[in-house]
């Protein structure tokens, strides 16, 4: 028997001619259970909508009467101010803390670490009450030589009103979280980017502003937007300090007229509207920083 040639095949199978499928009708896969799920969900949604319209408990006419009254609009404005200052100061301090933690100095690193550790540990409401009672700890605030004589001094009672105590508390709390978000964003930038910038001799600050931060912004923004939105709703916590923000004012009104549900809806709808505005802003800011990116 030879190994160099195959034994001749007695019955070589005839290749069947390829069938032509192009004229046949294609039947897509059916999804009957998907239709069941749709039907169930639709019924639930319809019931909820029906309830919103027909249940007299919502008292929509009360809602409509109070939604845009001056008291509520003023309260909305205070909520916006608390959010704005809390975010601005919080992120300003947060950026400083982030770069302290990223610095080469062990002292700066540990101070920033300790700050973040402390302010993430203390519940916001406890902290706010501390600031509210600042006058109890420090009666006077002096500007001058550290441990030496002071040149200017203020009464803390006059300086730290309820509003500034609230802004201070929100900002200091926010800074701890902002610091970690900014640090995460900076760490997400490829080390090669800094190396390339350094190799080109680009000045240090310019490296940060032009090369690192625009790229870090891509990972900072989604988290930062989360923080701003949660701070915005979190401002309702300062109602414990009797500051006339949205939630406090709504409570005052329903305490007077007893229409709890429609007034809670007033606050809810304002929170939804403003969160929507923030989300839309987020979309455009993110689009701005995504140039040159593929995803």
């Amino acid at each position: 028997m030879s190994l160099t040639s195959d034994p001749p095949l007695k019955t070589a199978p005839e290749p069947t001619p390829a069938e032509d499928y192009s004229a046949l009708k294609v039947v897509p896969v059916r999804h009957p259970w998907r239709w069941v799920a749709v039907a169930v969900t639709a019924v639930l949604v319809a019931q909820f909508a029906h309830g919103l319209v027909t249940n007299p408990g919502w008292e929509w006419e009360v809602f409509a009467r109070f939604f845009a009254t001056e008291t509520i609009l003023k309260a909305v404005w205070i909520t916006i101010q608390l959010t704005f200052y809390g975010t601005a100061l919080g992120f300003a301090l947060g950026i400083v803390l982030a770069f302290m933690r990223l610095s080469a100095s062990p002292f700066l690193k540990s101070v920033a670490f300790t700050y973040i550790w402390a302010f993430r540990s203390i519940p916001l409401i406890v902290q706010l009450l501390f600031w509210f009672n600042l006058t109890y700890l420090y009666q006077r605030l002096d500007f001058g030589i550290p441990f030496g004589p002071g040149f200017f001094s203020f009464d803390t009672a006059g300086l730290v009103g309820a509003m500034s105590a609230a802004v201070l508390g929100l900002a200091l709390h926010q800074a701890a979280y902002a610091a970690e978000i900014v640090r995460g964003g900076v760490l997400a930038v490829d080390a090669g980017q800094l190396e390339a910038a350094a190799a080109l001799g680009i000045p240090r600050l310019r490296q940060l502003r032009r090369i690192v931060l625009p790229q870090a912004m891509r990972s900072i923004l989604p988290n930062a937007a989360n923080e701003v939105i949660s701070l915005f709703k979190g401002t309702s916590i300062v109602s414990v300090m009797a500051i006339g923000e949205l939630f406090y004012q709504v409570q005052v009104v329903y305490g007077r007229n007893g229409r709890v549900v429609p007034l809670l809806m007033v606050a809810t709808v304002w929170y939804i509207v403003l969160t929507t505005v923030l989300s839309v802003a987020q979309y455009y800011v993110e689009r701005h920083f995504s140039r040159g990116a593929t995803r």
């Binding site: 090669g192 390339a196 190799a199 080109l200 000045p203 040159g292 990116a293």
Partner: peptide, 26 residues
């Protein structure tokens, strides 16, 4: 100082294995 080192580097071109172009700039 870092600033002087950066100044020196402008006289020396460096091309990296992985290019390291700035992706957000044209």
């Amino acid at each position: 100082r870092e600033r002087e080192v950066l100044r020196q580097r402008t006289r020396i071109g460096f091309v990296f294995q992985n290019f390291h172009l700035f992706p957000h700039l044209t």
